[in-house]
């Protein structure tokens, strides 16, 4: 019983910051502190009028969408290879691809910066962030898609081959529909990570900041803080929505492939 109390306290700890977001987003005061001073939707209205923010959001959406697509394609390759025959060195190679999962993000950021700027002399832009985000999102995609492929009976594709389909059409007609929920889930997760990623984006951003980079700039100006709270509220709501959809698809994928659910994104 005491364990249950502890777990509930832990959940409160986990949710405390997020719970405060809407509180201050609707608070009619420029200082983010107690006591509260009244209800307003002014900060949300201001959000709609901020052109620089809109540009940053658009930027981030483009980056996140590209990242989601490319990371999922790479993840599909790796997860499908993972479900196929073993060969010498397969574990090591997979481990190396999964490395960004534990690598400090600042290392990824500075090493890419060095290569792109100093070695290749390229100018930074959205594509440099996309490249880095694909790198760090691919391990997540692989983890999700591995789950989808592991739940898949390898005889399914063989059955399609046996019934006259070529390798590609067997993949298209049988495997792809069965892992499709995993693909959707992987894209949503990669999208969410990319949308929120700051550490790498800050190093690799070009002339146009991403949304987190823009927020980082605003954090220095106390007057803009309530607007950030309003933005944060929307982002949290959006994240929860995306994640719920991702989770539903992931579960459906496991079920459709005939497996039992073991739960979790990782």
């Amino acid at each position: 019983m005491s364990l249950r109390v502890y777990v509930i306290a832990y959940l409160i700890f986990l949710y405390a910051p997020i719970a405060l977001l809407p509180v201050f987003a609707f608070n009619d005061g420029t200082i983010i502190a107690f006591p509260l001073s009244g209800f307003t939707t002014q900060w949300f209205t201001e959000l709609t009028q901020n052109a620089a923010l809109h540009a940053a959001v658009r930027n981030s959406l483009v980056i996140a969408a590209c990242t989601a697509v490319f990371a999922t394609i790479l993840g599909l390759c790796a997860a499908r290879a993972g479900a196929m025959s073993d060969f010498r060195g397969k574990k090591g190679i997979t481990g190396f691809i999964m490395l960004p999962l534990v690598l400090p993000e600042i290392i990824v950021a500075v090493s890419l910066l060095v290569v792109l700027r100093q070695v290749l002399g390229l100018s930074l832009g959205n594509w440099t962030i996309i490249m880095a985000h694909v790198l760090i999102c691919t391990p997540f995609s692989i983890a999700i898609l591995n789950g989808a492929f592991a739940a898949l009976d390898p005889a399914m594709e063989e059955a399609a081959l046996d019934l006259g389909e070529s390798r590609w059409s067997a993949f298209r007609l049988v495997t792809l529909p069965l892992v499709m929920p995993g693909i959707v889930s992987s894209m949503l997760i990669a999208f969410t990570i990319s949308l929120d990623e700051f550490i790498i984006a800050f190093f690799l951003t070009g002339a146009n900041p991403t949304m987190p980079v823009y927020i980082w700039g605003l954090l220095r100006f106390p007057s803009s803080l309530p607007v950030i709270m309003a933005l944060g509220t929307i982002l949290v709501a959006l994240s929860i929505l995306l994640l719920t959809i991702a989770e539903i698809f992931r579960r459906r994928g496991v079920r459709r492939a005939g497996g039992t659910d073991t739960g979790g994104f990782l």
Binding site: D153, A155, E158, A159, L161, D162, L163, A170, A257, G258
Partner: peptide, 27 residues
């Protein structure tokens, strides 16, 4: 395998779960 005059009943049956019985048979 797709060009051989053999067809197989798999141990797990490998019935395509996203297709109906009719679509499976017609595959």
């Amino acid at each position: 395998p797709n060009k051989r005059p053999t067809n197989m009943v798999f141990q797990s049956y490998a019935i395509f779960p996203h297709l109906t019985v009719g679509q499976n048979v017609a595959f």
